[in-house]
Write a protein that binds this DNA or RNA. Structure first.
Lengths: 129, 129
DNA sequence: ATACTACATGGAGTGAGCTCCAAGTCAAGG
DNA sequence: CCTTGACTTGGAGCTCACTCCATGTAGTAT
């Protein structure tokens, strides 16, 4: 699979994909004899995971560290597991912040919908909004 | 309340707080006669909201736009409501990505915990991990 | 053989969101 | 009155994660 095809599948630019490889977020991709990237199933798996985890806000550095450990072999099982657990904590903490913000948002939206109907806004409870 | 006190409460730096004010994420804060910031309840409310929404990933620009509309007065109720609804969609979409990533993470962590116990890893299902 | 297109590489440039710094001001203590 | 320390401002600098660019090459069409 060429880089262009992969880009179409995952809605990402070739530059980003090459960048991910360069900084080690995905391992080195297979090449044709002429040196052109030719993504196989395994490469695609790495790409999919990288995009998924980046979308969730995990850092380039964390993902690259995981790949580095992966390449070192089986004696890094625990290290990789620890890293993933850390990542999980990070994501859970971030999601909690989303929930707090969403709750605030819902409250405000309800207020505004009422305000649009009645023509007046009443911030009786929360200051400065 | 001085800028330092506000910073201690919200675990943020004075530079960030002044930056937020400069770019309009919060409206201009009250000052003492000497020009020193003196945060009142309303100012604190804006600060709390700004931090909450920034933590959830809403952009500086979106928050500043809200403040801009707020300052324009009551005829922007609808615009503000629309903006908030857009923000809600953004947050819901982002949270969905978190959930997908968390699910993947849980799966991997389970695999690794098994691997650490048994000494071998079996990626029978997913390629490239 | 020549032209064209899609890829390759290394390195520079960009935008968002802070973060730091120089120079100046003000209020309190000695 | 002078020093000290916490504040002020405008502007430069930094980090992260891309994104763009110049230059070169590989493969295909004419």
């Amino acid at each position: 699979m060429t880089i262009k095809e992969v880009c179409e599948v995952y809605k990402i630019t070739p530059d980003t994909l090459r960048y991910y490889e360069r900084v080690g977020v995905i391992p080195r991709v297979h090449r044709t004899a002429g040196g052109i990237r030719d993504y196989d199933e395994t490469d695609l798996g790495w790409v999919a995971n990288a995009i998924c985890f980046r979308d969730a806000g995990l850092s380039i550095e964390l993902l690259a560290e995981y790949v580095r450990l992966f390449r070192e072999g089986d004696e890094t099982f625990e290290a990789r597991c620890d890293l993933l657990r850390g990542a999980r904590e990070e994501l859970l903490a971030a999601r909690k912040k989303y929930d707090v913000a969403l709750e605030k948002l819902e409250y405000k939206i309800a207020k505004y919908e009422e305000a649009v109907r009645t023509g007046t806004l009443s911030w009786d409870d929360e200051p400065g909004n």
